[in-house]
Design a protein around this nucleic acid. Structure first.
Lengths: 150, 150
DNA sequence: CTTCCTGCAAAATGTTTGCATTTAT
DNA sequence: ATAAATGCAAACATTTTGCAGGAAG
């Protein structure tokens, strides 16, 4: 997320629009989420948020992330490790993921050619593409993968 | 799966190669899995398998599916509904999925152009594609979607 | 007769919910 | 004042594990 302030404003606007309340906990969680700007899990987010506000509980993080998803500001992702992770989704194209099976490194990509083709495939089946999820799992061919030895 | 017999033979061969045992339960589960040939969940598989062998437990189904996955005869999939489902993977190209968000219908597809592009993307990042997961979520544009009304 | 497998129940995850209390509007 | 949010613990759903007994090689 390039502009955390902008994201927070969008968030507050959505809260107002929905008649929901702005609270310290939500602000801490959401701001942490946008600042970190990586594929963060609820566990990790809780740890970070507690540095700001130590009494925050799991439930609040879950509820806040659900809210962000509903408001279109975050996307839940589930890769191969059983944890739901979240991506900021604000002023940004949807993107896809390349995951190293050796070190679990996650690389984002966005490829017009793939997307165009997926649109065509959907259309050929009478559907309109609303959302897609493209993940490539690969193994390192170079020696820069820190966990390659495993 | 076109040829269940062939699939079972492959399964038994893998068991032998790995020094594992062939049991009634495994046979029932695996044969059911290959016969059904759809994206089946553990729950559904257990129900079906118990028609053949009523005392089969959850754990055995989980363990058998894990085994099939390890042996490369099944692929776990997780779409948007929180359940792990399995696809047979035998003598068959890996394929991808188009999911109708209105009726949850799942259409399989396999597109060389997409695959070629994904291979290139992986290579460009120094990885070798080992596996991919491509899902398109779309909404019906025609009137043949049974749950469109929802 | 040894090793592996099964079924059960218990444990371990990850996530959601109910409720009394607190907080924002 | 009212409605919504929090934190805690309990409930849930799914998957994994420990173990005693049973079956396969």
């Amino acid at each position: 997320m390039k502009d955390v302030k902008e994201a927070m404003e969008a968030f507050h606007q959505r809260l107002r629009d929905a008649g929901l309340k702005s609270t310290r906990q939500r602000d801490v969680i959401v701001e942490t989420f946008f600042k970190i700007d990586k594929h963060i899990s609820v566990d990790e987010l809780l740890v970070e948020a507690r540095k700001q506000s130590p009494r925050i509980g799991y439930a609040t993080v879950y509820r806040t992330m659900k809210l962000l998803v509903e408001q279109g500001l975050a996307n839940p992702r589930r890769f191969d490790d059983g944890q739901t992770r979240y991506d900021p989704e604000f002023d940004k194209e949807q993107h896809d993921h390349l995951i190293c099976v050796d070190c679990r490194r996650i690389i984002e990509f966005d490829d017009d050619e793939v997307l165009a083709r997926l649109n065509k495939i959907a259309a050929d089946h009478g559907l309109k593409l609303r959302r897609r999820s493209v993940e490539i799992y690969g193994e390192c061919q170079v020696t820069d993968c820190p966990h390659k030895a495993n």
